[in-house]
Design a binder for these strands. Structure first.
Lengths: 204, 204
DNA sequence: CTGACGTATCGGAACGGGAACGTATCGATG
DNA sequence: CATCGATACGTTCCCGTTCCGATACGTCAG
């Protein structure tokens, strides 16, 4: 169960009949995600991605059988946890930092989530890829922050507001564009945390 | 600037060479909105709407020039304020009632908002129709509830949590399906109001 | 180590198939 | 006699496939 040269034969063993370097692959992924953000999932075309990356449709279809699979692969490559590594020793400060981190999110991934929000209901693989890439890691990281606060005794483990914190953060993030017409930036989110989240948790 | 019979000549002046009664028209609107909820905006077809209402495509295109205009008309006909008429004399109770009202929202209009969320970025008329039909009236009604609470002295007019209440309500409403995998029902929203919103406003 | 050769992959382009928009025709009907 | 429903049509668009020449990688002889 410890394949070393077997599963990644490219860099060392070389050969690699595919001439697509990981960097090149990432260009494809970046391009399709960008087009999704701009035009929505349905409006994205393989031709468009091919054109914008100056590759051919054949190349894309050689690597991924179908458009949803291609998009799902792009999403999986996108997995990154932005709330990770936040641990200041204070729950209030952790949440402020999380808000700040989420603010940089704002434009890019919020639009992605928005654009894929409904397309996801049609394709199970897409659904799972989206959750695993953008939603669950962040939620889990946020819950960890809260649990550490509970462990330090800053909040009671059964405090009723606890369970709503992740939904609140993501909710405000996603909904401000609709309600106020502009994306939620770091400032807005930090103010929100201080005005609503912390007081609800009893952290003054 | 006060055309009365001119812009709505149908009901009273009647006759109207169009044989489409307002009830029939509403059937078209209901059908297209339902299909949008199920399949998303892009996947909705005029043929599908025609089939499901047993009318012909020609009939639809005689009344509305294009698909976005048709959908926009359907949205405009959908305008209904669900938070209106809430006035119990207590801010906390008003907010609980609003949460309950929003819970019935949940399935139908949340899915609609989700499905149109990105299509709206392409067509300005759609954008405006969606905001006027589903978003602004509810926000305005919610703000009125808050203002009455301020007027009664239940909350300070400059309480920092005030401005975030609408975004919080809508945010949690829209995001719970993504975070927890199920729609936000009335119970969930009322618990949320009591656990998070009211404490943040200092209403115990 | 070097240089030529075979071959698999690449990019380009064209193609078939299908779906949906929007138009047009036509008979039926009230 | 205008409007309805049905149907067929032209157009456009995109998915996914296929073919072809060009290119560059990997290999091996010298």
């Amino acid at each position: 169960m410890t394949p070393q040269a077997a599963d990644r034969p490219d860099t060392v063993v070389a050969s690699r009949r595919s001439k697509i370097t990981p960097e090149r692959e990432q260009e494809f992924f970046d391009a399709v995600l960008e087009q999704i953000r701009e035009c929505g999932y349905d409006a994205v075309t393989m031709e468009g991605v091919a054109a914008s990356t100056r590759c051919s449709k054949s190349t894309l279809y050689r690597q991924w059988k179908t458009k949803p699979q291609f998009v799902a692969a792009a999403l999986r490559s996108h997995r990154r946890v932005r709330f990770a590594g936040i641990d200041t020793g204070s729950l209030a400060e952790d949440l402020r930092q999380a808000a700040r981190a989420a603010g940089e999110w704002s434009g890019k991934d919020t639009r992605l989530l928005q654009a894929l929000g409904h397309a996801v209901m049609q394709d199970a693989e897409l659904q799972q890829a989206l959750r695993e890439a953008l939603v669950e890691p962040e939620i889990a990281a946020l819950r960890q922050i809260l649990e550490r606060g509970v462990a330090r005794g800053e909040v009671a483990a059964d405090h009723p507001a606890l369970e709503y914190v992740p939904a609140q953060m993501f909710g405000v993030l996603r909904v401000r564009p609709v309600v106020e017409g502009e994306y939620a930036d770091a400032d807005y989110l930090v103010r929100f945390v201080e005005a609503a989240v912390l007081p609800a948790l009893g952290l003054t």
